[in-house]
Design a protein around this nucleic acid. Structure first.
Length: 423
RNA sequence: GGAGAGUUGGCCGAGCUGGUUGAAGGCGCACGACUCGAAAUCGUGUAUGCCGUGAUGAACGGCAUCCGGGGUUCGAAUCCCUGACUCUCCGCCA
């Protein structure tokens, strides 16, 4: 969330940020509720101050066994009633204010291109060789079905649309990718591996920004009030919720492999073919906690670390700087990494690397101290996929396919696959 | 799932027959003294959030916080209700 003081004093900046992001948020309720809150607070606090001093006097009188306290007690009883009324009003206002505050999007970094749709995203760089084919490359759903490694029908039978089953070498290929990516990030890039819960309480989702606004897109167990994670970003960022980290230890870098669960309400009817968009998918996620002045630099490192994966898989990939309209609610700046899929003939987003500034750290209260004496400050948080599995799988299948319908295993995955080809 | 015990400041740990207890004592930490330096010792200090004044630095005043929420009371860390978590025993299980 944004610093309420900052919002109060920079209404124009926040208004522009909301407009540039194309968000629906309205500053009006926030400003009004904020003013009301402070008004009530002043009244109720002065009453409480009065009650505190008089109660002390009553205590003194009681000690001296003086019976004159009755009038004071009666008076304070009335003050108590007024305090109660104010407190109730205050609670109602604060509840609404909290909602209003949590619904304000983060402010884009000045370096982010202003735009009104994804068409205004800027391709920063295109890397890797494009594979040439002497036959017409097939889309992954054809390759997968023919090889018997992707079973759409049975997935739907068990769980409905947007579910599928990976079988045999298909399941193995996904597992190989996971293991290999974790090894690259832990051994070579210095990220510490984490195995987090896949089901979390609502505080976690408020912390990273999915709640309260995007509840529609999440799976929720109402009985226990627990939520299936839509990304490892949620549990991994919340590892340190409510904690103060040692500034000397920053940056803290984590990598986690988890499944992700999304209802995809917001993308209904989109990408219905193949395994590009499902309700359940796997992902290897990178998460960083760093000093505020280092987060721009850390974002660049994050992108480089994630790019190492398509690079070593021999894929054609590009880095796209998102414009303001395409930034997510919590992000200040985002680079997408996309890989070329010659079968479905499109660039697939396999990673979204974002700098959230102190937006998530404020919501989740993640702080650090530069040293023992200094005051606690909010860390900056960042994350990006490294990478998302189904789309990476798509890219491998489509780019490494052969004319006879088999798929050659990329060099880096051979030790993990135990074979050179699928089919 | 059943029964019981517990949850106090960075940590340990008093208080829990309601009233200078933001909270004893100890440890840790910071600064100072002593020392050539260090240890030991002594002294001082050592939470966070919010509101307000100041005007955005520091300072000062107020409110809140003894797991969370509610209640009783003039007044609650202390009493009552409720939720979460931890521990022990029993049951069950990968």
């Amino acid at each position: 969330m944004l610093d309420p003081k900052f919002v109060r004093e920079h209404i124009d900046v926040v208004t522009k940020a909301i407009a540039d992001k194309g968000e629906q948020a309205d500053l009006g309720p926030f400003l009004e509720l904020d003013a009301r809150r402070r008004g009530i607070l002043q009244q109720v606090e002065s009453l409480k101050a009065q009650r505190n001093t008089v109660s002390d006097q009553i205590a003194q009188l009681k000690k001296q066994k003086s019976p004159d306290a009755d009038a004071m007690i009666a008076e304070m009883r009335e003050v108590g009633e007024r305090i109660k009324a104010f407190d109730e009003e205050l609670r109602a206002v604060e509840e609404k204010l909290s909602d209003a505050t949590l619904s304000l999007p983060n402010i884009p970094d000045p370096s982010v291109p202003v735009g009104t749709s994804e068409k205004e995203n800027v391709v920063d760089r295109v890397l890797g060789e494009e594979r040439t084919f002497d036959f017409a490359p097939k889309p992954h759903w054809e390759i997968g079905e023919k090889l018997g490694i992707i079973d759409f029908e049975r997935g739907v039978k068990m769980s409905g649309t947007r579910f599928y089953v990976l079988k045999g070498q298909g399941a193995r290929l996904q597992r190989a990718l996971i293991s290999w990516m974790l090894d690259v990030h832990t051994r070579e890039h210095g990220y510490a591996e984490v195995y987090p819960p896949y089901i979390v309480n609502h505080h976690c989702l408020v912390g990273t920004g999915q709640l309260p606004k995007f509840a529609d897109n999440l799976y929720h167990d109402a009985e226990e009030d627990l939520w299936l994670i839509p990304t490892a970003e949620v549990p991994v960022t919340n590892l340190y919720r409510g904690e103060t980290l040692d500034g000397q230890q920053l940056p803290v870098n984590h990598v986690a492999y988890t499944p992700c669960f999304r209802r995809e309400k917001m993308s209904a009817g989109k990408d219905v073919r193949g395994i590009k968009r499902g309700h359940q998918f796997d992902k290897v996620e990178l998460v960083k906690f760093c000093l505020p002045e280092k987060s721009a630099e850390e974002l660049d490192k994050l992108v480089v670390n994630a790019c190492e994966i398509p690079k070593r898989l021999g894929l054609r990939y590009r880095v796209v700087a998102l414009c303001t309209a395409d930034l997510t609610f919590a992000s200040t700046k985002t680079y997408d990494i996309e890989v070329w899929a010659p079968g479905c003939n499109e660039w697939l987003e396999v990673s979204s690397c974002s700098n959230f500034g102190d937006f998530q750290a404020r919501r989740a209260s993640i702080k650090f101290k530069r040293d023992a004496k200094s005051k606690a400050e909010f860390v900056h948080t960042l994350n990006g996929s490294g990478l998302a599995l189904p789309r990476t799988l798509i890219a491998v299948l489509e780019n490494c396919q052969n004319a006879d319908g088999t798929v050659s295993v990329p060099e880096v995955l051979k030790p993990y696959m135990g074979s050179d080809r699928i089919g």
